[in-house]
Each structure stands twice: as structure tokens, then as C-alpha cells.
Design a protein around this nucleic acid. Structure first.
Lengths: 147, 147
DNA sequence: CCCAAGTAGTCAAGCTGCTTGACTAAATAG
DNA sequence: CTATTTAGTCAAGCAGCTTGACTACTTGGG
């Protein structure tokens, strides 16, 4: 029983790695070749309402400095924009640019493309169950990069 | 439907990240403080019958050079040993040392400690189903580091 | 049997993404 | 209205990976 438990990590990590690789490949195939998977995690946080550098740093579990230079890179490449923060003149609100949104849509398409076969293989019932089970396991909140 | 599909990656990656963090913490708590999660992936490959540097490199999806210096580090720290390869004088067989085995057992304990609550939360039936579903999804084979 | 080509591994140099440390500007507390 | 905290950036350093070049051994075709 305990022995059986131990192959769950392997399965989980395998699935996660496959997913990340496939989405990254799909995004590149759609023309966004200057992004790494890690950027996707930033986009995920920014796509809601934007975020400050500090919030992004916490979300990605990295230092503010690292987040800052990641933002700088995304600004240079045209995926995000730095706007003055409406309520705090020290802070800046980082939001997706039109190009950033286009890339986000591409990522979603790529994700669905990968997930579709999974969904078909499992069937709607098992799929719902899988999602429910994972929901109980995963602590909701920040989406950490894992590579 | 498609929209619903898109939270699967989030759940999966969250669960994977939580798992990795918890196991890493558990291993450290058991006294192996000089190892990173990435080393665990190497151990997983070596624990079977050992492996050559080249095999390890492929397993970890990195260059031979990188694998070589990872092995060098593990040798220095006493977790693995380089043995002459029985069938090829160019190659060396990398195997776990007693300390390496102790660490592997510690990692298993830590993993079970994390997985136990998951198993309890889901119940044996759903757990079996989860494992079966993940098996269909994950392409078996190499266990890639994802961080 | 031998030489040419291929393979296992290491050495060296370089790059990238992160860290720690030091600083400026703005907000907030007393 | 000063003292402390907070948001962000600049700069330097480091860790883990890469590419390139090399040696030692193996393998296959004359």
C-alpha cells in the first residue's frame, strides 16, 4: 500500500512535465519563440487584473529583483506594459499588452490541444473526478514555476 | 467545457509543486541538507541498478557534461560511487553509496508522509482511480526534473 | 588484424537567471 | 514633520547549465 503510494509522485511529475513541454512547444509553434515556460506563470498572474512587481515576485516565489528584471525583459519584448499604479506612486501596475494577450490566447489554445486527448482518453466522468481529486490535493493560491 | 479544461494544468502543477517542496523539506528535516530536489531525480534513476553518466544525462534531459559534474558533486558529498563499468572500459557505473541509500529511504519516508493525507482525503477507491488516470496521461519513461 | 569512425567521459570557458547588498522615492506611523 | 517601512531599481556575484575541444576506449569494414 505504502509502496504503491510512491509511484504517485512519479506519475504526477511526469504528467506535469509533459504538460509544460507540450504547452511550451505549442506556444512556440504559434510564433512566440522568445518566451520560456517560466514566463507563462507570470502571464497567468498578470492576466487577471495586472499586478505589481512585488506581487509577481511572491507569486513566482522569487525575489523582487528577479521579478523586476523579468518584467523588464517582457517590456522590451513587448508583452507587458508598466503603468503608474492608481493608488500608490511608488508602485507600478504591470499589465499585459495586446501582444501579451495574443500570447495568452495562444497558450490556452496549446493547452487545450494537449488536454483534449487526455479528456478523450479518460471520458467526461473520470475527467471531472480527476479535477475534483486534484483540487483537494493542491493547495490553491500561487502557481509556482516548477522548472 | 474547454474553459473547464484549462484549470487542469493549474491543479496539476500546483500539486506537483506542493509535492516537490514537501519531499525536499522532509529530506532536509531528516538531515540531508546538502541536496537539492534535482538530486532526487538522479537518485531515482541510480537506485535501480546504477547508470552511466550518459544514461543519467538522458534521464535528466541535460548534457553529459552537466550530468558529469552533478555526479562529481554527489561523489564529493558521499552519496554515490564511481565504479568501473563491467562491460565497457570507457564508461563508469555510477551507483548509490550506503549514504545514498539512506537518503533514498529518507526521501521515500518523506514522500509517504506527504501522500498519506492525500490518500486519506481521497479514500482508497478514488486514489486507485487517480493513479490509473494519471498513468494514462503520463508518458512513462524518464522522470524529468521540472524545477 | 588494423585502422577509421563512433562513443563515454572529462576539462575549460561562457552564459543566463537567479541571489544578496545597497540605494532612491514614496507612503505611513507617531 | 520627522522616523520607519515599503515599492522598485541598480550592481555585483554565484550556481547550474551550455557549447566546444579533447582523451581514452570500442567497434566495424577492409
Amino acid at each position: 500500500m505504502d509502496r504503491d503510494l510512491l509511484d504517485l509522485p512519479v506519475l504526477l511529475l511526469n504528467a506535469a512535465a509533459a504538460l509544460v513541454d507540450a504547452i511550451d512547444a505549442g506556444v512556440r509553434a504559434r510564433g512566440f519563440t522568445d518566451l520560456r515556460p517560466a514566463h507563462g506563470f507570470a502571464f497567468a498572474r498578470l492576466s487577471h487584473d495586472g499586478a505589481t512587481v512585488g506581487q509577481l515576485a511572491e507569486h513566482l516565489s522569487m525575489t523582487k529583483q528577479a521579478a523586476s528584471q523579468l518584467v523588464e525583459e517582457l517590456v522590451t519584448k513587448g508583452y507587458v506594459e508598466r503603468r503608474p499604479h492608481p493608488a500608490d506612486a511608488r508602485a507600478r501596475l504591470i499589465v499585459l499588452s495586446p501582444k501579451g494577450w495574443a500570447c495568452t490566447r495562444a497558450a490556452d489554445e496549446a493547452a487545450i490541444e494537449v488536454l483534449r486527448p487526455w479528456a478523450d482518453a479518460l471520458g467526461p466522468h473520470r475527467l471531472t473526478a480527476l479535477r475534483a481529486d486534484l483540487s483537494r490535493i493542491a493547495t490553491p493560491g500561487r502557481l509556482r514555476p516548477i522548472w
